[in-house]
Design a protein around this nucleic acid. Structure first.
Ligand SMILES: [Mn+2]
Ligand SMILES: [Mn+2]
Ligand SMILES: [Zn+2]
Ligand SMILES: [Zn+2]
Lengths: 135, 135
DNA sequence: TATTAAAAGATAATTATTATCCTTTAAGTT
DNA sequence: AACTTAAAGGATAATAATTATCTTTTAATA
């Protein structure tokens, strides 16, 4: 288990056992829904409250310690903040994968031909993962 | 008001006055949240039920007559199905604009270097619209 | 015009999320 | 190591969002 105590504190978050466990789950799983996170956490803290999950997810979002990823036709997943990246979502099994895609050219081109100022981009590609292509 | 009666029927949807009005609102507004749609519809049908909004939105989604667009840090908006396109979302005023972006090169490149099969892409650029850049 | 399956409206039920309140605790301070 | 305290956790009530149920109405077809 990676030690995230200092990183939590840098984000103005007390390093409680529950938060360290949430962080570890996010680190190990990569992307997870609220519902799944709660189920995993209950195994570690049998009396944890769902409210604790929500409160922490919201705080961590506010402090940019984690990010929400909205997936078409599915529930949002949450992940530790890292370098900008896009996502692939399997329509069959629900797996989410990170993809590094350089969108600079596209964004620059869009910025050049439009009036708005672009601060960020969110790209999700949907389809079938390797496993689900076979079965 | 455009006549969407036949188009609704082609999607196996009875052309009720409520549905024609929803369609007209979507046509005129472009992108709209459930909440806003309900407020607009109540002006036209003062006794319309919120359940009617939800049932119709869900049916129209199932029949691909409309699409849901998930926006980061904001509520989903709904729009009439049209040719593939991306979106710009203003972080300040919430305005949503269509953008035509050719993602074929990127998608082909991603498909070439990865194992998954891509069926669709969803791209949302966020930032400030022209108006909100000034104020 | 009569028939009927589907849709609308009213509202109950369920699910998702947030708020409240009391207890516990992390993180400093002595 | 004990003391202090604001913050966090747990229990649960409250609210918001969405879906289900049931009765009445109506679009579509004959
Ligand atoms: Mn990711
Ligand atoms: Mn659009
Ligand atoms: Zn899969
Ligand atoms: Zn704006």
């Amino acid at each position: 288990m990676i030690n995230y105590t200092d990183i939590l504190r840098q984000h103005n978050l007390k390093a409680t056992p529950q938060r360290l466990a949430i962080t570890d789950v996010l680190y190990v799983q990569g992307h997870i829904t609220i519902e799944s996170l709660y189920k995993v956490m209950v195994k570690k803290f049998n009396s944890i409250s769902l409210a604790t999950i929500y409160k922490n997810i919201n705080l961590m979002l506010e402090n940019s310690f984690i990010q929400e990823v909205k997936i078409p036709h599915a529930k949002s997943v949450y992940e530790l903040t890292k370098e900008n990246h896009s996502h692939f979502a399997c329509e069959k099994c629900g797996e989410i994968q990170d993809i590094i895609i350089d969108l600079d050219n596209i964004i620059n081109e869009v910025a050049r031909t439009n009036t708005f100022k672009i601060n960020s981009s969110d790209l999700v590609l949907s389809g079938l993962c390797k496993n689900c292509q076979q079965n």
